[in-house]
Structures are given as structure tokens and as C-alpha cells.
Design a protein around this nucleic acid. Structure first.
Lengths: 229, 229, 229, 229
DNA sequence: CATGAATGAGAATTCATTCAT
DNA sequence: TATGAATGAATTCTCATTCAT
């Protein structure tokens, strides 16, 4: 976070440090993806080829390490959103985006329980803003029904998380089929939705309340393990 | 934590064993619903107003206690399925059922990570069979699109779990809106689904793989905490 | 111990009580013989067909129950000693006695760790006195070497315990062969024994020190389990 | 229990890992010798001046710690066997060996219930092989009667264990006298032994059956406590 | 700076003993 | 009086975090 790049004789050390940080993040990401957040710090350190102390130097807390990994994942999603913006068809772009988010979540199946709630606020805000734009553009184009709001998009992501968490070890298509179904619903105007969407405030609270839990030490788990095992 | 533990002799009159068992199950259910499965046995015992030993008398293992609670939840779902069968309109019955499952899952938001996987096999099989019937009847009536299979129903439940786990502390409508959306997709015949459903085998594996994880001691979490607290 | 046999209208209750006591002792004996002293009180109660409370009525402590069983075993040994006295050949009588003690110890293989140390002092004294007599008579007859003292007999019992504890589940001859060897040594006069025997005081201390251990709660176990299992 | 736990920062300087491992093994050995295997890990850790976690770092399980200590003891016995081989008189060498084994067993009186059964298979095999050689050589020399087999040697060790377990706190000669007696029997050819020895298979089973018990959690005890205390 | 050994609170589970019914 | 449910201290083991080397 504060990696000041001051030109100096100690640049080599700097590089070592940066390399180490990368190794740690890689190891953490992979560990979380495969085994979920319950993996011990020792296991992550081992995978990274460093000592636990080295991890704790950069990440004072396991929660911080998790947050760092989550940030990367959320950044992947942001990039997907940006890419989707380039699609000349707003409707296709929006759908591309939903699939991309599904793909990212599937890839990081072990991290889902903390996605959004533990991530860097700024990036999350960016993602939110992009999501909103993608949705509105698609709606303006008439590709997506008009009674849908941004909060429904967030809900779809949680929905996918539920499906992915359970099916990831067994199928890589299940979530796609589910999303397909959802998209079909999103593109039809006819039936009115009978329940109100989450308000923006509530959507924000979801993250906050979840965060509280974590803070209280009731550290959740990650319920996934990939196919090979 | 700082509740003075002065035991006045008449503070707790001992009741029937059955009553005690109820207290334990109630306490466990509430604890799981609110705090998830990570709650300590001690905490559950305290909530029930009994010693840990009392819990262990009926439930030799924490897993057994969890299973008992889960069984109750699954039984609620079974009852809902049975009730839905009575609806003269097969389509309405099926939708009733989906909402009922959502409602039950919402009520026991802390238990979702073990639903299905830890429950009594027989009851789960019963639920599955009833679900299948409800679906087929609704399809025969033309209320539900024909390319949907039972495994999609299971997927919908997982999807709802994802939504509920995140939104339960904040909204009791979010999952309903999501389900509404899904049902609209289920009732439309037009768009073909582009991805295959889970095979029955895979659907079975979902439970099994999850169960393995649990067995391996990577005890899942429960990611929810209700509004008040 | 204090079973006053006052003739009275409540004699039937008395009989029930006595029957219960027998059932408890039988169950305890069998349990200890088979599983050692670690068996839970619950298991013993179950075997006896009574509740734990009933056991605790007669035996305020597990140690007391153990002592009661041990007393019976020691009484068996006393009876064997008495019987051996009847043998017209003092030498044969003495050897008979050694074998008899071995047999009793083998039968109660799970109880050996407390034999002697936990038993009723009076009966132990009786056994000791009889043993002494049997030994002296055999020595007077010239059947047993003269440099052997009573304490050596006790030592032989402990020696047999060591052999039985290890071999009981596997062989019912091992201890006999060992005793045969010992007896051959006992009947030869030639080699002088190079080490002094335990003094009577020391022999007494063995029991006392052991008893202390027990009292301190470091309740030993019984290391045997019979062949069938 | 009531030792003020004020941690002055310089109270315990941290030493090498190796040194610590030694401290742990020493503490474990002493604890077992004195109090038997029932001592809590906490107690051992306290004696070693470390936290429980430190023990568990090297010994994932209490059983592993026990095994480590036992291995050392068995190694002592192996060394004694090797040394006995050097004795030009095969008969003396054999007797030396028996005494050496007695001495080792006496020193580790609290560990006897697991000797052989919990030890490293390879070393046990080595000891067995050496014992066999020592016996055969002595028999060839005519020093030991010919109807004795290796399994009888094992039996003698168990016999000594029985004597030592009871007498160790009270006398350091008792076992020697008993062994003296046994050796006199071993050196006489005249009387035939009336019972068959353990077969090699049975001797092997002794260890296995015992091991099973341990595995089943019926952790044996150690029935000894040294004189002082 | 990096390392990984040490820490110790916390979690599940057992079992002798007590006591309401 | 008998029953067996309830108790809770004690035990083994885990893991995030600290800190000597």
C-alpha cells in the first residue's frame, strides 16, 4: 500500500521485498481459492516459500491478507466491467459482464464468503458505478427490463455465489445455466416484480454487517474445495 | 462474559429431561441461526441454561447436534412440500413451495451451509421426491417450462441461500424479489437454456463432497447474523 | 459392611438391596476383569441393570467399589491358601498355592494393578499369615530352599502380575511356564541369593505408596483385555 | 496452581530450538517416570518451562511424545545388548544383559506399561535379534539351559516390569533379587519345564493387542511414583 | 529484515459424582 | 429408595500472533 519507490542504493532490497509480497499474495490467493479462508497462515507461508513472520510484516492480521486478496479479485471484476463497457451492444455488454463476474467468482470459489464485504471501498465503489452504468445503458437500449435496479445486480452476484459455493467442486456449468435463466428473466418486460429491491442503504449495510461479524472474530469459512483433491 | 456466575440454589429448578432437550435444541437452533455453526458448545449450553455435559448426553458430537437442528429444518421443508401438493393448481403449488423453502431458509439463515448435506438422508430423499413431483405436475399443467429439471430446483435453493446469507440481516424481501425473478424465468418457454443442468449424479456429489469437507474438520461457517444484536 | 440383619417387616426390601449389591459387585468384577478399571461407572451400572445412583448408594466412590471387588479377589486367594494347607505334602501345598494365586490373578487380569494395595487389610493380613505358614512348612520339609522369605512370595505374585497383564489376552500358559521356572529355582538350594529380600516394612510400604497414588487421583488403569473381543 | 503467573520479560530467555526439544524430552521422561503417562501435557510443558504449543510443534500427538521417550529407553536397552555382546563369557554376557534391562526398566519405572508396544519397530527388532543371539551363545556355551527360548526372555522382562512397578518406590534391590532367582533357574538343566513357551506369533501379538488398547484410547497407566515425593 | 519457534487462549469431548424426581 | 439426567472440571489438540535469533 505504501510502497514508496524512492530511488536509492537499497533498491535491490526493495525488489526482494516486492517479490516476496507477490509470492505471498499468490500463495494466499491460491490457498484461499482451493481450501478457503480456514487455511492456516503457516500453510500459506509454506506455499509462498517464506516464514510466517514475513507475511505478518506486510499484513498485520490474517484479515488484512484476506482483504488484500479480495481486493485483487474485486479488481478483476472491475476490469471485466471496464471491458464490457467497450461492447457496442449495451445489452451484450451487460450480459458479458454478468458472465465475467460469474467466471471470476468461480475461479476464486474459496473466497466468496468475503467478496465485497472485505474489499477496498474505493474499488468496490468503482465496480458499483460501472455496474450501474452497464445496467442503465442496457436498459436504455431496451435489452433489460426497466424495473430492475442496480441492487438487483448485486443480488444476482450473491445468488451466483450460493450456486458456485456448492457446485464448484462438481460442475463448472451449473452457475452458467443458472445465470442463463436469470438473464432470460432480466430481458423480459411482462411480469411485474412483486417485491421491492434492496435500497442502496441496505445494500451498503449488507457489507457492513458482514464486516462486523468478521471483526468480532467469528471469522467465517469458505465452503469450497475444487474438483481435484 | 462478565455476568456474575453466582449460583443461587433456587435459581434454576430442574425440569423434565424432555423439556431440557427442547431447551437444548432451541438454544442450538437460535445459536446457529444467529451466530452460525462456529458457536462453542459452551455458549449453546449457557444459552440453554444447562451444562455442556447435558448436551453431550443426547448428542454425542457437535455434528450430531447440528444434524438434529438441520433435520428439523429439512422437516419443515418437507412439510411445506406436502402442503404444496394440496394446491389444486399445480403451478401455484410449485411456486408456493419455492417461496416456502425460501422462507424456511431465511428463518434459519445461520444453518444454510449445512442444509441438505448434513440432514437425515431419508427426509432429504423424501423432499427430493416431492420436489420432483411438484415440478413435473406443474410442467404437465404447462405452468413451468419443460426444459427445467429437478436439479435446477436444487440450484435455485442454493441460489436463494447465497442471497439470504448476505441479505438476511438487512432485508426480508431481497430473497423474495430474487425468487420472483427466477419464477418469471421458469414460467417462460421461449428462450432455450444454453447450458446443461447438473446431472443427478453431480447433484448427489454436491452433498457428498460438502460432507467430506465437513468430515475432514474443515468445518464450514455460517455467514449470517440477524438484524438485532 | 454395616448390613445389620435385624429381623423386621422390611426384610423384603433388605433382600432387594442385597440382591442389588450382588448384581453391582458381579457387574463390577466382570467389567474390571475384562476392561480394567477405566470402565465408566455408567457401564458398570448398565451391566448390573441398575442406575449409577444405586452404585453410589453403597459405594460412595469408585475407589470403594474397586476395593470391594478387590476384597473378593483377595478372599479367593485366602481360600486357596486355606485349601493348600490341607495338602499332606507341605511342598506340594506351597506350589499348589502359587499356581492357585496365578490362576486367580489370570482370571481377574483387569484388576491386577490394585490387587493387594486396595484390599481389606484384615484379609490381606490373613493371606500373608497363611502364605508365611505355607512357606515355612515347605521349607521345614526341605522342599523349598531356606534363604527364601515371605516377601519373596509377594514378589513372585507381582512378577506373575507383570507376565499376566501382558500375556493374558494371548496365552493362558505363559504365566504357568514362568511360574514353573520360578518354582524350580525355589526348590534348589545350591546358589546363594546375592540380594537381600524386601524387608517386611518395605513390603508394607509397597501397598501404602501405591495407595497414595490412587488417593491422589492418579487413578491407574488396568492394562488387560481378554482374548475374545 | 497458585503460582503467580507474572511474566517478567527477562524471566525466561529463549534458547535454541534444539535445547528446547531437549527440555521437552527431559520433562516428559521425568514426568512419565514419576507420574506415569496420565500426566497432562500442560504439566509436562510447565515442567519443561514451555507452552503446550511448543510440545505439539515437535510431537503432533501425545502418543508421539510418549513414543519418543520410549524410543530412548529401548535404545538404552539396545546399547546394553550390544555391550553385553563384548563379554568374552557368553553366559556372563547374557546375565549382564538381563541385569542391564532390569536397571533400565527400574530407571524408567513410569514408562513400563508402554515399553515394547509403543517403541520404534526397527529398534525393537534389533533388540530382539540381539537378545536371541545372546541367549543362543550362552546356551551353546552351556551356561543356560537348552529348553529356554527367546520368548522366555521377553517374559522375564515383563516379569521384572511387574516387580519393578510395585517395588520401585520402596526398594532398588527387590527386582535384582528376583532376577537372581530367575537366573538360577535358567542355569539349571535338571527339571523339565512343564508348559510350552509363548510362540513367536503370540509374543508378537502381545505387543499388537496392547497397542490396540492404546489406540482405542484406553490409555494405560503408569503405576509408579518414585521414593521422594 | 527474514525466519520459524514459542505462545496460550479456546474448542470439543469425557466421566466421576451429585441430586431432582 | 432407585433412577439416570445434569454437572463441570479436566484433557487433548489447534492456530493466529509474537518475538528471539
Amino acid at each position: 500500500m505504501t510502497d514508496a519507490t524512492v530511488a536509492s542504493p537499497s533498491r535491490v532490497l526493495r525488489r526482494d521485498a516486492a517479490e516476496n509480497l507477490d509470492k505471498v499474495l499468490d500463495a494466499a490467493r491460491t490457498s484461499f481459492d482451493e481450501d478457503g479462508f480456514e487455511v492456516g497462515m503457516e500453510a500459506i507461508a509454506h506455499r509462498a516459500g517464506v516464514g510466517v513472520g514475513t507475511i505478518y510484516r506486510r499484513f498485520p492480521t490474517k484479515a488484512d491478507l484476506i482483504a488484500a486478496v479480495i481486493d485483487e479479485v474485486v479488481a478483476e471484476i472491475r476490469d471485466a466491467a471496464v471491458a464490457a463497457m467497450d461492447n457496442p451492444s449495451a445489452g451484450d455488454g451487460f450480459c458479458d459482464y454478468l458472465y465475467a463476474v460469474g467466471r471470476v467468482q468461480f475461479t476464486h470459489a474459496g473466497c466468496l464468503s468475503r467478496l465485497w464485504s472485505a474489499a477496498d471501498e474505493a474499488v468496490v465503489a468503482e465496480v458499483e458505478s460501472l455496474s450501474r452504468d452497464l445496467l442503465v445503458r442496457a436498459q436504455r437500449e431496451g435489452a433489460i427490463r426497466s424495473d430492475v435496479v442496480y441492487e438487483d445486480v448485486a443480488t444476482i452476484f450473491w445468488s451466483l455465489q450460493g450456486v458456485i459455493e456448492r457446485t464448484a467442486p462438481v460442475s463448472s456449468d451449473a452457475w452458467k445455466r443458472h445465470l442463463d435463466l436469470l438473464i432470460q428473466a432480466l430481458t423480459h418486460e411482462d411480469g411485474r416484480l412483486r417485491y421491492p429491491p434492496l435500497t442502496p442503504t441496505q445494500a451498503r449495510d449488507v457489507k457492513q454487517v458482514w464486516g462486523q461479524r468478521v471483526a468480532r472474530g467469528a471469522v467465517p469459512l469458505s465452503p469450497v474445495r475444487k474438483l481435484a483433491d
